[in-house]
Amino acid sequence: MIDRRTFCKKSMLLVGGLALPLAAFELFDPRKLLADKSDPAKERWVFLVDTEKCVGCGYCVHACKVENEIPYEANVTRTWVERYVVTKDGKSHIDSPKGGRDGFTAGRIEIGEGKHEEIRGEDVNKAFFVPKLCNQCENPPCVQVCPVGATYATADGVVLVDRKWCIGCGYCIMGCPYGVRFFHPVYHVAEKCNFCYHRITKGMKTACVDACAFDARRIGNINDPADPVTRIIVTERVSILKEEYGTKPQVYYLGLSKEVK
């Protein structure tokens, strides 16, 4: 017969043994630990949006949808253009019909459910366009909330989604303060802008940057001090979106206005 003392001893030992994760048996590789700090990535992709230059033609949204195979008629898009019209009565009117895919060709503002509001030219105090896309945050909250390791940040600073790994729980879509994530209508997994990873890693620019005729969108490498985009970010007055969230977004804006959230 087993006595109480040995029973307690043995079961504690067993519980302790079961609680040890496999990782505890992994040997530390000092080179691997050091590598993180001593070898900064050659590239860290950043984006620069000049809202003064954007004319709202929407070619960037069009090109993005085609390049990245986002179903064209589905009302989802990796990047979009918002229109802000501030009228003399102090109201700001904001719209982005179909994400701006077909451009802004009329003065009326979409107010939802297919309805529009007519705005007269003489009532406009200021009006401008703001392109939006994934901020590829240095501290991406969307990555932290993923329970299965399906979304992650690469060494060159781009947040990607593993379509084979994603279980479609939607936590990341809720977790993104910028609302850039959505469900892919075909694959039914989380989808987002990835700075056209297949283009930038081949030395090309993103599809939206190439489609922009006005230099409103530019992509650069912040780790290269000679990069023209880096020059602008370090020498000019750039701003970022929702700084208070501490996500350290890597999409920088020129000429933002207080109406832009």
Binding site: V55, D102, T105, G107
Partner: peptide, 12 residues
């Protein structure tokens, strides 16, 4: 897309 007249003096 580019040439439709919009009364937006403050934009590109």
């Amino acid at each position: 897309r580019c040439h439709a007249l919009l009364p937006y003096k403050t934009s590109g």
